[in-house]
Design a protein around this nucleic acid. Structure first.
Lengths: 301, 301
DNA sequence: CCATATCTGTGAATTTATGCGCAGGTTCTG
DNA sequence: CAGAACCTGCGCATAAATTCACAGATATGG
């Protein structure tokens, strides 16, 4: 029977797609990962990965083994949960946040949470407006403004930095003095980023208006013009490039809010703890766009 | 995340109940098992085993972790099955053998097979008479006589040795010349062991007759007298002791039979392969009662 | 086109894990 | 009660795995 621990490394490498990234997460040297994968392949008698120049990609056979490995991980996690004396958490936790955070930041990162707590269902609502936590319209909210509602627990979780971004194509076909901008529509003129954007215009036009930042992002990708986007989006997407601005944009604080009655509920605690750790880990990426972990490379999945 | 391979050792130790026995099965040194269990306990932050003088016994906490570990093992086995390209085997395999083999030898040892192939259901019938494999009354038969049915594949799988055994209590309260014997009833006088037994009587009576060997075994345990029993039973049960005989008992060959049409069916093959390996492993125990693996100790489960 | 950052691969150095032998204890047996 | 056959625990030599350090390859940005 092969070494079970090699399967753990296999899973991590399958997820990360590169020796170095997997090694970082596993806190071992990349050569260790390479060697252990090699012995696993020898034990099982088949090639699990294609060694591409840019990383390791699962072979077809490797991909079929992945699901078994993932089920194995589920049991390992269950075992450790039992060992720590915690009962299995279950229930639904509703998270309310901005459309931008919901679709471009949280969704992909909550995959790991689902693995750790398969019995907690996450309901993620991306909504422009903050729902009323006192009326239990959501359990947890992540917002860019300090709450005005009284009686909530609010915790600051770092900040998001913004900058001007446009697609490579747009920038290579347009002179700076002809730049058109992408902004919020009139109803949202009070938003900080919008006011900052207007200061950058210097007579140039707003070419496209919309009501939320994910649309701005897609508009920018579609060569529509220059948009104010969070650094974590602008630096992560290889299509986009930053445009120099006259003044630095103001950062906005990220706030996590929860109703005090719910704060101690175990499932809520589990989500909060995870979110706090997540925002801490991604602190630099959010603030300045400097990737804590390297950006995802496009590997044939 | 703890080392998954330690969990594999944990499972084996939980099953075997002693460092040395687990180490033998894992093909590592017993001190390795001890150290790895110690690190697992440290990682999980709790005591998994009670260190008794006679071995390692699961603590209550350890026992709750065992089921998770077993499910993990199921997934590991599934992964390896996929890796070897074999599809998951399923279906029922009916095994026909003597009542003695069925209840006192195979049942406990087929537990491991069930682990390896959870989708194969075993139907084990212990019957005094050999069923007709040609009529598909069973898929595989394990018998002590070479088959007379034509058209069957028969394979010799070692032999069983017999000896005289009685309970300690009986032997300590009865003089040899007063020994009463336990034998087959008249209808079964043709059986080899019965004929050998009659040669040992020297005028002493047959005190109890029955029609199969498991009953003999229970009769002997109940201080009913001296019985002809296979060594693998007599030396395994601590209640029994061997009684010297004038002549050595004849060994009987063990035959595995299967219908040639079924021989290549994957599920049948899986069972046959396992049985062949099992009988090979237990060869010495069956022939002379010398335990290949040490006898099971009674640990508080 | 060069500088930078991120990969993988390889051999030497070092840390870590394993096996071995023996001591000490317990249980079973004659 | 002595001997055999188990068991565990510990120190030490050695084998094995891991890290370290550096080289080469490949994209990316200015």
């Amino acid at each position: 029977m092969a070494n079970w621990d090699d399967i753990r490394l296999f899973l991590e490498l399958a997820r990360e797609g590169s020796l170095s990234a997997a090694a970082r997460r596993l806190k071992v040297d990349h050569s260790t990962v390479a060697r252990r994968i090699a012995t696993l392949e020898r034990d099982l008698g088949l090639r699990l990965f294609d060694r591409l120049s840019r990383g390791y990609a699962l072979t077809e056979e490797g991909d079929t083994l992945r699901t078994s490995a993932e089920r194995m991980e589920q049991e390992a996690i269950a075992l450790q949960r039992q060992a720590s004396g915690r009962p299995a958490l279950q229930g639904t936790v509703r998270i309310n946040t901005t459309p931008m955070f919901a679709s471009l930041f949280l969704t992909s990162r909550l995959v790991e949470f689902r693995r750790l707590h398969p019995d907690i269902r996450i309901a993620l609502s991306g909504d422009q407006r903050l729902v009323n936590l006192n009326r239990r319209e959501a359990d947890i909210a992540i917002r860019l403004a300090k709450p005005s509602e009284s009686g909530l627990i609010a915790r600051r979780m770092g900040s998001v930095g913004f900058g001007l971004y446009a697609s490579r194509r747009y920038l290579s076909t347009t002179r700076p003095r002809d730049y058109g901008f992408i902004g919020y529509d009139e109803a949202l003129g009070h938003i900080a980023q919008q006011q900052w954007l207007e200061a950058q215009l210097r007579g140039r036009p707003i070419a496209f208006q919309c009501s939320d930042m994910t649309t701005m992002y897609h508009a920018a990708c579609a060569d529509m013009g220059v948009a104010v986007l969070p650094h974590f989006i602008g630096t992560t997407d290889p299509q986009l490039r930053r445009v120099a601005a006259e003044t630095a944009s103001a950062d906005r604080d990220i706030w996590l809010m929860v109703h005090p009655d719910l704060r101690r509920a175990p499932r809520i605690r589990a989500v909060m703890d995870y979110l706090v750790a997540l925002f801490e880990r991604e602190r630099n990426l959010l603030a300045s766009g400097a990737a804590a972990r390297p950006r995802r490379r496009a590997l044939p999945s």
